[in-house]
Design a protein around this nucleic acid. Structure first.
Lengths: 224, 224
DNA sequence: TTACTTTTCGTAACGGTGTTAGCAAAACTA
DNA sequence: TAGTTTTGCTAACACCGTTACGAAAAGTAA
């Protein structure tokens, strides 16, 4: 009202801008609240109704921002993969030696998983009904790329025609994911047996060591 | 009534026997029906109410056989681990060479997982709210034993003081579980990329090969 | 057979979930 | 100020796991 000489179109734009801004605020408050619930109470007690309650809106408001519950999960799934890729990239950048990069990424993968258990559980559907992530996670391409480039770099000098980086990448990922998920789902059984303390870290080292040796030995290997 | 000369106690026993038998029949029909639902419609659409409907009893009847839904899951969980241990044992018995035993068990593990996806999903909580399996699955001890004995046998000749079979067992399991679960949760992404057909099997071979080399090389290894 | 007791089991409820139709109130426009 | 659009709430639907309670069936004793 006090703004002098504003054209009608300007006013309209201002209003729609504010509306968009407000809508965006509600959206982020949904995501923030949802995440808070997940972190404090776990995935199992995360519900649309609880979020609606917490943000002091009615349930259908949430459905005007997200098509359904799965869409909210997908949002966190994307962010989780982005965080993971960032963590791997940072770890990788600390050295130029391919074998060290692989070691560093392996440890970064482990650290990410246990510093962000909720993300990891969602990303790989550990114990919760997750969302279909295929084709919807842009960072998944970066994920394979950042790992595979180190593998390729490592094998480059004396590479064999049968050497398959994609295969090695999957071995790498499988080993890491298996290690993480077993320790995340059944921690006490695996850790505390007969006083084996921080054994998972030893297993991680062992597995990374085997993997790197496997690539180093790729030139003289017979693929039986 | 037509049975001549039965003592009262005999009649009573007969009745209680029949009652026990009938109760057992209902119990197995619950489990059978539940399993049928899981196999045909997946874990997500398995519910107490659906089972009650299918066996033509009311819901509370199920609660007189199982404390809750989780108790039913636990039943399948136990059976799944027993089947897995059996599969591994059978595969192992085909040869006496420890390295071949490990290879055979690795492949048997993979085959079990994809021949019994529902079991595997439940046992390792892939995408479903699973039950707390710790301390309740008797076959879990056999599982570690059947694998570890081959590992020990393999390393026995020139074993190093630092060689840790329990650690190697966990590496083995982690690799296998990672490989299986990644291929079970996101099959198309991993398999069909750029026409890589039955690549998972190659990865399995690669991973098993690395693992066995890792044990063979244990004597001369520096644990960096 | 009859009267009493125990077991069995179905109805209906409680509190929770995801999702959506329909309508009232608020906000904006003319 | 009157009309239109947007916004958001109430209430419902169809599920879910779990359980209190009462009726009917089955077994027991006279």
């Amino acid at each position: 009202m006090l703004t002098p000489l504003r054209k009608v179109t300007e006013v309209v734009m201002g209003i729609t801008d504010r509306k968009l801004r407000q809508k965006e605020e509600v959206r982020t408050s949904i995501l923030d609240t949802a995440w808070e619930i997940v972190v404090t109470e776990g995935w199992s007690s995360f519900s649309i109704r609880k979020v609606a309650d917490a943000i002091e809106y009615s349930v259908p408001v949430i459905y005007s921002h997200f098509e359904n519950k799965e869409a909210i999960l997908l949002e966190f799934n994307k962010k989780g993969f982005q965080l993971l890729v960032d963590a791997l990239t940072t770890a990788k950048s600390k050295t130029t030696q391919p074998a060290d990069q692989i070691r560093a990424m392996g440890k970064a993968y482990w650290n990410f998983a246990f510093a962000n258990e909720e993300y990891y559980q969602l990303m790989f559907g550990l114990g919760i009904p997750s969302c279909d992530s295929k084709d919807k996670i842009p960072a998944l391409g970066d994920f394979s790329q950042v790992i595979m480039s180190s593998i390729v770099a490592m094998a480059a000098p004396g590479k064999t025609p049968t050497f398959n980086p994609w295969l090695k990448y999957q071995s790498f990922w499988s080993m890491l994911h298996g290690l993480v998920s077993i320790n995340m789902v059944a921690p006490d059984r695996v850790n505390a047996e007969e006083g084996h303390k921080d054994l998972p870290i030893q297993v991680l080292d062992d597995v990374l060591c085997s993997f790197i040796r496997g690539i180093e030995a790729a030139e003289s290997a017979r693929p039986d």
